[in-house]
Every structure is written in C-alpha cells, then in structure tokens.
Design a binder for these strands. Structure first.
Length: 255
DNA sequence: ATGGCCCTAGATTAGGGA
C-alpha cells in the first residue's frame, strides 16, 4: 500500500493553518512534517486538526523554529530533538513511528553566512544528526528523513550556481554533511526519481523570486534502502496561492 | 543600488530567515 510522506516549511503555523488543513484534505498524506511553526506547543491550535481526523505531535518554540508531525494513524514512540544534544534549546527535530515506518522530521539550522557563529552551530548540529541517523537506521530499517535541510545538494538545485558558489546553503562543508547522510544509505528521493530536472522548493519573497523562478531545492525527502520509491515531487500550488509560505511542500511516495 | 518581503514580539523598530 503506497504511502505519501510530505515535508513543508510553513513559515508560521498560525498564519498558514488553514492552508495546512486544506492541503491535508486534498492530498491526504500518511504523514505531513511541518517546519517553522513559530509557536510554542501550548499555542498550537490543535482542535481543527483533531476534528478533521488527524493526529498532531509537535516540538514547538516561541517565535522561532518548531516542528510537527501530522498523521492519519496514531504516532508511536515520539522523540523530540536529537538525543545526546538535549542541551540545545532550539526545536528542530521530531520523530515518530507509524507501524514499522520511522519518520524523522527536521528543520536544519540556516547558518546565516559561511564562517558565522551560526554556521559553526549548523555544522555541529549536522554532525550530531549524522550519528543519530546512523543509530536510527540500525533500529528502524524503514526510515524516512524529511525536512527543510537548508542545504542545496548540488548545483542543479540552485538557480544561479555561480552566484551561490561557496555561499551559505551551498558550501562544501554543508554539502559534505548531507553526503554523509547519503553515505549511510539514504537516498534523495526527488533526485533519484528525476535525475536531470531542475525544480526548486523555496523562492525568496523579494525580487519576484517565484515569478522569475529564482529558487533553491532545499526541502528534501530521504528514504532508506528497505523502502521502495514509487514517486517524489514538489507541489507548486501552495507556493502560488495567496499569502503563501516561501517554501513549497516536497513529497515522496513509498511502499 | 547589496535592498527588495514576510513573520514575530511588542514597538513606534529590530532580528531572523535563505
């Protein structure tokens, strides 16, 4: 039975909640991972999701970050944050099981600029993530890692590779950290399905970024070898509607 | 022309995002 797993950075769940509910109604994914809730767990308005028949678990935070998993079946063994990184106050990771499928949903740090203090935080966070994913793969052969990775995997994923060369989201250390996840056995589902296609998942609000297709592909769905890839793509429609997030949902269908 | 837009907190602007 194929299952659709979706990742969507909503840039404020408060503003985008009705869009999320519309998306669930029209696409009925098995699991939808959200990033940048910008809400505490207490502030999340859960009733509408529950009334529509969805389960919702969150790792919220005031003003910044925040991640959620929304699902049709009840999540089991929910883990918030990255184990062994529990002093980190930033809400950037949540994992849960749905049957024998494990889903890890991430909001990878942005990093601000190469060399910045936040850049070093990003690289350190990615190292801890790699160790965590390695352990997860041993425990859960059927693993999907989704999220806003804030890394464009390759130049084809960048509208202007020369302008972005060695810049934040495209630097070699960031791409190497992503490659380390691939080396564990994870596959970038969109790129596996569409080896030559340039398709972005984020466009700057400024400069008519969407109209001119000045974007990046930084929202990824990674799958483990025990899963069969059916299809993967990026949904443009939510990015094109009124008052959108600056990210579009990235999805993978597996069985 | 190195900013443009959007979000939050909570102020009459600043910080963060990518």
């Amino acid at each position: 039975m194929p299952m659709k797993i979706v990742s969507w950075n909503v840039n404020s769940l408060n503003v985008r909640q009705s869009q999320v509910l519309d998306y669930l109604e029209s696409h009925h994914p098995a699991v939808l991972g959200l990033q940048e809730l910008k809400q505490t767990d207490e502030a999340v308005k859960r009733e509408a999701f529950i009334q529509a028949g969805w389960h919702l678990v969150t790792q919220g935070q005031k003003t910044y970050n925040g991640v959620a998993l929304i699902s049709k079946s009840a999540p089991e063994n929910v883990v918030r944050g990255i184990p062994n990184n529990e002093d980190d106050p930033q809400a950037r990771a949540i994992a849960a099981s749905y049957g024998d499928l494990r889903v890890l949903n991430l909001y990878v740090p942005n990093g601000k600029a190469v060399g910045d203090e936040k850049y070093h935080y990003k690289l350190g966070w990615l190292e801890k993530l790699q160790a965590y994913v390695a352990r997860l793969l041993q425990e859960y052969p059927k693993l999907v890692v989704i999220g806003d990775f804030n890394i464009a995997p390759a130049d084809i994923d960048v509208h202007d590779p020369k302008a972005w060369q060695d810049k934040i989201l495209c630097s070699a250390p960031e791409r190497q950290a992503l490659q380390a996840l691939f080396d564990l056995g994870l596959t970038d589902a969109f790129r596996a399905r569409h080896p030559e296609r340039q398709q972005f998942s984020w466009w700057d609000y400024r400069m008519g970024g969407l109209r001119r297709n000045l974007g990046l592909r930084i929202d990824l769905t990674l799958i483990s070898p025990a899963l069969q890839l059916i299809d993967a793509d990026i949904d443009m429609a939510p990015r094109e509607q009124e008052r959108p997030s600056d990210h579009a949902p990235a999805w993978v269908e597996i069985q």
